[in-house]
Design a protein around this nucleic acid. Structure first.
Length: 496
RNA sequence: GGGCCGUUAGCUCAACUAGGCAGAGCACCUGACUCUUAAUCAGUAGGUUAUAGGUUCGAUUCCUAUACGGCCCA
């Protein structure tokens, strides 16, 4: 048997009392005419025009604090645009109305109308002529000073986190802004925004374990996409020479400060471009985002200044391994030597894995964390790049780059492999790896091969992790801080 | 998957080292107060200490397991 908390019981009793007194605790007829932002702007622009009686503002919001005196009260309330103080006096709103106000709680929504005046301490305040309860809150908000801190409660009940913590609101407004700026940036360059299937018969475009689901009517399993790549390239084949998609992909992996099972990616494809062009475009895009979102091309992340404004470093994987990992470039083609090096550095690698996998694994551990300023790494081995175009000059390498910032992989781009015969061979090699036990290896996608056979113009494409970008621009250590509702295990509810 | 840490009132935290009546602030409730802004003053009330076991005369405290979470590693 649940014993509900005293404080919630009392709130629910107040609700019943309201109903008994024929006051609707959930009306929907209050017409809002102004926002807090509107009011503050008027105060700023024309303070001399304001009197207690005019102009009359009509505004609504959630009460975040109440200071009651005997026959007057100050409240602080907030709408989507900001917070404002209001002053309610018994002699202004009438005894009946004031007694009704006394029954309200922090957390309730009120509709207010009145004029602006300046208090003795100089704060512009709404002098309320009329107020109306707009929504009763049946549960108390957290403490006003400390707010809600427990990360588990913050993630599980993000609405309270948002209601209480302005820095959390700022993070998600910033995230939204980042996406909007990127969208506009691409639209301005004649890219077409599209939506491609999230449920796919063959999951492709990345090395990852997919989620499986089942379509009853079709009697078939489908996979939640691990990337939109192969569909976006089909669109390039169809003549949409510049396309992009910003949406969710899903990977059936563990959760951590950097991984959420569903995450947001931008992927874009540009025909007649090469991967070098996309590096230029990426620099331009990030500078633009930084300027639009923060007002500067350099940002602070975990105590480090990250500068997008200067030319980004471009360095080959082999050189980076030598410079940051201390691995002799001559070792790059020597499997046994690399395995020995990995072992002596306590890096666990799959001994049977392909050479490229061993190299990238060592890179992840020794080099990636050291790449603080934006850095493009190029020259990836072909066997870890099964969808990339083969380099004309070094056929063992792909025309590919990855972008690292603040020790995180942020983007991955390459000139697309548009030779269907080569692509088929690459898939076959992946299938071989899969059969050898590599669960993340690509699946054979015959339908995609067929599409390539119709001809895809030379194209370069890139994926950018939006969550990680949002982490960078909001100085967040954990991906959960930039995802509104991060995945959590369900918990038995003790109290309904 | 492994290691470490955490879970006490609606919220933020004490009490645990060395077992002995579970406490504070805010919020709530009652009263006073017409310029407060972490309002103030007086008084009241609020707990199955995450869950299940064990040790003990006695467990929030020690032990075991489980659940959920955080950080680090894989």
């Amino acid at each position: 048997m649940d014993k509900k908390s005293d404080i919630i019981e009392k709130r629910k009793k107040k609700l019943l009392d309201l109903k008994r007194n024929k006051i609707n605790p959930y009306p929907n007829d209050f017409v809002v005419l102004h926002t807090v932002r509107d009011i503050k702007k008027t105060v700023e622009d024309a303070p001399d025009s304001l009197t207690e009686d005019s102009p009359v503002f009509v505004v609504a919001g959630r009460m975040m604090a109440i200071n009651r005196f005997g026959k007057a009260s100050f409240i602080r309330f907030r709408d989507r645009t900001g917070q404002l103080q209001a002053y309610l006096r018994k002699d202004k709103i009438g005894e009946k109305s004031y007694n009704m106000f006394k029954q309200l709680d922090i957390g309730d929504f009120v509709g207010l109308n009145g004029g602006m005046f300046k208090t003795r301490t100089g704060e512009w305040t709404l002098l309320v002529k009329e107020f109306k309860l707009v929504c009763k809150s049946a549960r108390p908000l957290p403490e006003k000073f400390h707010g809600l801190k427990d990360p588990e409660k913050r993630y599980r009940r993000r609405y309270i986190d948002l209601a209480m913590n302005s820095d959390v609101r700022d993070i998600f407004m910033k995230r939204s802004r980042i996406v909007q700026v990127i969208r506009t940036f691409l639209l301005d360059r004649d890219f077409l925004e599209v939506e491609t299937p999230m449920m796919q018969p063959v999951p492709g475009g990345a090395e990852a374990t997919p989620f499986v689901t089942h379509h009853n009517a079709l009697g078939m399993d489908l996979f939640l996409r691990i990337a939109p790549e192969l569909y976006l390239k089909r669109l390039v084949i169809g003549g949409f020479e510049r396309v992009f998609e910003i949406n969710r992909s899903f990977r059936n992996e563990g959760v951590s400060t950097r991984h959420n099972p569903e995450f947001t990616m931008l992927e874009f494809y540009q025909a007649y471009a090469r991967y070098e062009d996309l590096m230029d475009l990426t620099e331009e895009m990030f500078c633009h985002v930084a300027r639009e979102v923060t007002g500067s091309t350099s940002i602070q992340y975990q105590g480090n200044t990250i500068d997008f404004g200067t030319k980004w470093r471009r360095i080959s994987l082999a050189s980076a391994m030598e410079e940051f990992g201390g691995i002799d470039a001559g070792l790059m083609n020597h499997r046994e030597g690399l395995l020995e090096f990995a072992a002596s550095n306590k890096i666990k690698v799959t001994k049977t894995g392909r050479l490229g996998k061993i190299i990238t694994k060592i890179f992840d551990v020794l080099v990636e964390p050291k790449l603080l300023q934006p850095t493009f790494i190029t020259g990836y081995p072909i066997e870890v790049s099964p969808l990339s175009r083969r380099s004309d000059t070094e056929p063992e390498l792909a025309d590919r780059f990855e972008l690292f910032i603040a020790g995180h992989e942020i983007a991955n781009g390459f000139s697309e492999l548009n030779d269907p015969v080569d692509q088929k061979e690459r898939f076959l090699q992946q299938v071989e790896d899969r059969e050898a036990g590599d669960k993340e290896a690509h699946y054979m996608d015959e339908d995609y091969i067929e599409a390539l056979e119709y001809g895809m113009p030379p194209t370069a494409g890139e994926g950018i992790g939006i969550d990680r970008l949002a982490m960078l621009f909001t100085d967040s250590v954990s991906i959960r801080e930039v995802i509104l509702f991060p995945h959590m295990k369900p918990v038995e509810r003790a109290n309904g």
